[in-house]
Computed example of a mutant assay.
Amino acid sequence: MTRDTAPRIVKCPHCAKPVEWRTDNKFRPFCSERCRQIDMGAWASESYRIPAAKPPDGMSEDLDDA
């Protein structure tokens, strides 16, 4: 039994260009090597950060002393 389905299209995480999701696309989910490298550089430079809640009063001083 074969499945005839339309190709899955996703947006490149960097430039938002539509990209067909295929196993033979070595850059997926990115559209190109360039977008993949830009994203890797952002991770390496710690540009992607998760915001943290402010620690309770006195906790930050405890961490500084450690």
Results as ranks from 00 to 15, higher is better:
K26A: 10
R36W: 10
A53L: 08
D62R: 14
K11L: 11
M40C: 02
A42E: 06
K11E: 06
P55S: 04
M1R: 14
I38T: 10
C12N: 10
A66W: 06
C12F: 11
T2K: 10
Q37V: 15
A66D: 01
H14N: 14
S60C: 01
A6H: 12
E33T: 15
M59N: 01
D39L: 08
K11R: 15
Y48L: 04
L63N: 03
Q37H: 13
R49S: 02
I38V: 15
R8H: 13
P18E: 00
M59T: 09
A52M: 08
S47F: 13
E20H: 11
E61M: 07
C31V: 08
S45Y: 07
E61H: 12
P55F: 02
S47Y: 14
M59F: 06
C15S: 08
T23D: 08
V19S: 01
D64S: 01
R49H: 04
G41E: 07
M1P: 08
C35E: 06
H14M: 15
C12V: 12
R22I: 05
A6K: 15
K26D: 07
D57M: 04
E46T: 05
T23E: 10
R3C: 05
K17G: 01
R49M: 01
K17Y: 11
V10H: 05
A52E: 11
P18F: 00
R28P: 00
R49V: 08
T23P: 02
R34C: 04
D57Y: 07
M40V: 10
C12H: 09
R34N: 11
I9G: 04
E20M: 14
P7D: 05
A16N: 15
Q37D: 12
S47H: 14
P7A: 03
W21P: 00
A53N: 08
A52H: 09
F30C: 06
G58Y: 00
R28S: 10
P55D: 02
A52I: 07
C31W: 00
P29N: 08
R36A: 06
C12K: 05
V19T: 06
F27N: 14
M1Q: 14
P51H: 10
D4A: 04
E61S: 10
W21S: 14
T5Q: 12
S45D: 02
D39H: 15
E61Y: 09
D62Q: 07
C35H: 06
G58P: 01
D4S: 04
K26S: 11
I38S: 06
F30L: 09
L63Y: 05
C12G: 03
R34G: 09
I9E: 01
